[in-house]
Design a binder for these strands. Structure first.
Length: 558
RNA sequence: UGGGGCGUAGCCAAGUGGUAAGGCAGCGGAUUUUGAUUCCGCGAUGCGGAGGUUCGAAUCCUCCCGCCCCAGCCA
């Protein structure tokens, strides 16, 4: 609960605008999240989703989920389904307000004719190349198309025939008649409709012409009664066109567009084009590869939606381009999981430890706390015996001063079990340590010495006779540099060590029934969850995020 | 060189004329049966720069510098 209140959205310029609008008499707030179904949602979209749904909820309004499906050559039903699933998973509900820009194609068409009749739009026969050449550039004005002054009757006739499918794809377009000399390129007679003989996921083969984003978006907002159309900064110079269309059309409402900076994350790429490329080239296993920044991937990796919401709230909303440190995201994940994830023990890189004074063939069960941060989580019994596994990293034959885990002659605590002292080290012919011979103190059962003596370290462990094997997938940043692509080619910046598979791990018996997506803390290691690939005879766990590790820091510095 | 934006600590980000919030990261220290968590402490005489207005400027004015977006029949 506290994590939700801690991550509550603060003040921001959008909320300021809405509040002053309401103070000025605007009766309700209607927003919309308008994804194009041409890819999976990622954490950047989480920000847009949260702003739109969050603001609507906060001010008693509503938020629509509207698919911006105006380009049938790129959109697919698979994406529509995935987007709906992900928005719900993130924790938002559009209720009955699920819409598609394609629902408005007929109305949009009528409005296009309206523009033609009022002399505000014309059919242009220029090819794409010619049109670009005549559009001018950033410093030079464009030139009027030779078709710019066609009669209303001819425009109407041509546009109707475009709709009827009389012309091939790309043959003609409908353009707004605004100003070819505008400093704003979007006002140089922007294309409103293009001919596309393509099957649409929802309208099938009904249409041969499709509206562009500019012609569909604002009008869709107006049809739905959207009051605040919130989008990202790159649409800023589309706003004059957005307003122009609203002004020149008999739309039922007057929505207003406001822009905010999109979310960027260090060591991450958040662009559908790049993500699509990673999937298409097989650089990742799919849209839900746990290394991806997609919501589907974060879910599979074990990141709770509440952690994403908390992170987005922390990052804030502003109009300045920025790149948020991935560490801030990890902090949100850890903070939530620390309070909620049950603890278990798992040995990632096992080293056998034999307790020579523990009776052979004997065994016992010890009580372990499920979550020290949450007494209500209770306790569990874990098997203990003569042969155990501990982490290879927890032993050093010749340790430096600041290493206080196990080493020859040193006593440490086995969590929730006993104090053990290392008596001998067994090596193979290659000189590698294969086994640790220890003794235990029966009077330290549970982890405390009756004489009050202390040990510096506490190790996690599993009973060799009871611990199933497991595959552990450790994830590191997908990119090796904080600003992938800054060098020109983001593919060249891929981190070759983004996935590390450990196949010989041994885990606490209770982990055999772990359920995908449910967070677990492997004590002293990090937060993990069972992967969807996991099966009873082949357990697989994903590392969501590691615990903070000041020892690693000390080592790195040394 | 056209149009539109943005510049507050390493990274986000409040602040809207009254003397620089908060978070992340980092660095100390305390506690600790997770080298985790938790707790305590530390950072901008300064708000891209230079002038100006004012009793007073991150906030107002002028000029300059830097960065981002726009030349798809993508969104």
């Amino acid at each position: 609960m506290t994590h939700e209140t801690a991550g509550a959205p603060g003040r921001d310029f959008i909320r300021d605008i809405i509040e002053s609008d309401m103070a000025a008499g605007k009766s309700q707030v209607v927003t919309r999240f308008p994804p194009e179904p041409n890819g999976y949602l990622h954490i950047g979209h989480a920000k847009a989703i949260q702003i739109n749904f969050g603001v609507a909820r906060q001010y008693g309004g509503r938020c629509h989920l509207r698919f911006d499906d105006t380009n049938p050559t790129k959109e697919e039903q698979e994406y529509i389904d995935a987007i709906k699933r992900d928005v719900h998973w993130l924790g938002f509900d559009w209720g009955p307000h699920l819409y598609y820009a394609s629902d408005y194609f007929e109305q949009l068409y009528e409005w296009a004719e309206h523009l033609i009749r009022t002399g505000k739009a014309y059919v242009d026969d220029l090819g794409a190349e010619e049109m670009r050449a005549m559009r001018g550039n950033l410093t030079e004005p464009g030139r009027d198309s030779p078709y710019r002054d066609r009669s209303v009757a001819e425009n109407l006739d041509l546009f109707r025939r475009m709709r009827a499918g009389e012309f091939p794809s790309g043959a003609r377009v409908l353009r707004a008649r605004i100003d070819m000399a505008s400093g704003n390129m979007n006002l140089r007679d922007p294309v409103l409709y293009r001919i596309l003989h393509a099957e649409h996921p929802r309208t099938g083969s009904k249409w041969y012409i499709y509206p562009t984003y500019d012609f569909a978006h604002g009008q869709s907002d107006a049809i739905e009664g959207v009051t605040h159309s919130l989008c990202s900064l790159e649409f800023e110079d589309h706003r004059p066109l957005y307003n122009w269309l609203i002004e020149h059309l008999p739309v039922p409402s007057r929505p207003r567009q406001y822009e905010f900076a999109r979310l960027n994350l260090s060591y991450t790429v958040l662009s559908k084009r790049f993500l699509t490329e990673l999937v298409r080239q097989g650089r990742v296993s799919g849209w839900d590869d746990p290394r991806m920044p997609t919501l589907a991937a974060l879910r599979r990796r074990g990141v709770p939606p509440a952690a994403i919401r908390d992170f987005v709230n922390r990052a804030g909303i502003a109009r300045a381009n920025s790149v948020v440190d991935i560490a801030m995201f990890e902090h949100s994940i850890r903070e939530l999981l620390n309070k909620t994830a049950p603890r278990r023990m798992a040995v990632l890189r096992p080293l056998k430890l034999v307790i020579e004074n523990y009776p052979a063939g004997a065994g016992e069960e010890l009580e372990a706390v499920n979550n020290p941060e949450d007494p209500a989580a209770g306790t569990r019994r874990i098997a203990f015996g003569r042969e155990l596994y501990v982490e290879q990293d927890d032993f050093m034959e010749d340790p430096p001063k600041n290493f206080y885990r196990l080493s020859p002659g040193r006593e440490v605590r086995l969590r929730y079990a006993y104090f053990v002292t290392c008596r001998d080290v067994v090596k193979n012919s290659a000189g590698e340590i294969t086994e640790l011979i220890c003794t235990y103190d029966p009077l330290t059962r549970g982890g405390n010495a009756s004489d009050g003596r202390k040990v510096r370290a506490t190790l996690h462990w599993v009973s060799a006779a009871h611990a199933p094997r497991a595959e552990i997938r450790l994830y590191n940043p997908l990119f090796a540099r904080p600003d992938p692509g800054a060098g020109g080619d983001f593919m060249a910046d891929l981190n070759p060590h983004s996935l590390e598979r450990l196949t010989g791990a041994r885990v606490e018996a209770a982990l055999a029934t772990a359920i995908p997506e449910e967070p677990i803390q492997f004590e002293r290691q990090g937060y993990f969850c069972a992967d969807v690939d996991s099966a009873p005879d082949h357990l697989v766990f994903n590392r969501t995020v590691g615990l903070r590790d000041s020892w690693a820091k000390v080592q790195g510095a040394g």
